[in-house]
């Protein structure tokens, strides 16, 4: 094959051969609604998971706050947990956890350095995440949630100029 040539391959559609259409096992709107209910039923499990994650992120933050040097490993630890929190919240109706987690990830990813201001901002985000769970702020958290998120966004925007 010459270097500039493209080869097009059509693999057999293995998926279509294995799925059925309709019938008792079909995923229709009712099945999707049932699935949503199953996930909603996992909320208690989620709250247990997130409480654990919040403990872990607090520990990771304390390690970061007392770290010296480039703090790369400590920042990475905080990022990893905030990334998990961000990924899970919305699936269980805690969209604000996802939104705040997203802001925290953005802050850590985009910050050129992690100095005192950035560490203080990370702490603000962690406290906000805890508040969402202790106050049980579901969805976007209403007015309180909107204000909280907008405040955090302003803090991030200021630091990320």
């Amino acid at each position: 094959m010459a270097d500039d040539k493209l080869e097009i391959i059509n693999p057999p559609n293995a998926l279509k051969q294995k799925v059925g259409i309709g019938g008792a096992g079909a995923v229709d709107l009712e099945a999707l609604e049932r699935a949503e209910q199953v996930i909603a039923g996992m909320t208690d499990s989620y709250l247990e998971w997130v409480v654990e994650d919040l403990k872990k992120i607090e520990q990771a933050y304390l390690a970061l706050a007392s770290a010296r040097g480039d703090k790369k490993e400590e920042v990475k630890a905080v990022f990893q947990i905030s990334h998990d929190i961000k990924g899970q919240g919305g699936s269980f109706g805690y969209d604000l956890m996802t939104a705040i987690g997203n802001e925290l990830c953005r802050l850590i990813e985009k910050a050129d350095k992690v100095g005192a201001s950035e560490i203080a901002a990370i702490k603000l985000h962690i406290d906000a995440l805890k508040l969402v769970i202790t106050e049980d702020l579901k969805g976007n958290g209403g007015k309180e949630g909107e204000q909280m998120l907008s405040g955090l966004q302003k803090v991030c925007d200021k630091l990320l100029v």
Partner: peptide, 26 residues
């Protein structure tokens, strides 16, 4: 993320209904 049943099913459905050809180039 966040993942939800309808979103995941829609993605799977796309794979079933619109299989993509494969391309091999340098």
């Amino acid at each position: 993320k966040p993942v939800a049943p309808a979103k995941l099913y829609k993605t799977i459905e796309g794979l079933i209904e619109k299989p993509r050809a494969f391309v091999r180039s340098k």
